[in-house]
Amino acid sequence: MADANYPDDLLYHDQHDWARLEGDDHAVFGITWYAQDSLGEVVFYDGPEAGATIQKDSSYAEVESVKAVSDVIAPMSGEIVEVNDSLQDAPERINEDPYGEGWLVKVKLSSPTEAESLLAAAEYQKLLES
């Protein structure tokens, strides 16, 4: 994905993760354009299994490039209900389409109000510039 891009319909965590709220208590998580760009070409994604519980601000997965490993931080807490299995064979989707086919997990949120602490697209971009 060539150019920086931060969709307005997502919420952002300052550790370069995004959340897309679905309904009252579900969300999809992934990493931002900035995160995948800093990491370089993703060669491996080591994600959690469905059913795992994840905690806001804690690591729940790892993404690897050839010479770096990055923890993926949960923007919100909850239980994993679906994982993106296609990343096992095609981790490059995280680079190619970080907000679409490169999504990581779908989560049933345990505290939907945590959304209030996340950043809007403009705020996140301001953070990146500073």
Binding site: V43, F44, E64, S65, V66, K67, A68, V69
Partner: peptide, 12 residues
């Protein structure tokens, strides 16, 4: 697969 190794993954 160098990300397994100490010079990258350090304590992990």
């Amino acid at each position: 697969l160098q990300t397994r190794e100490q010079h990258i993954r350090r304590e992990k």
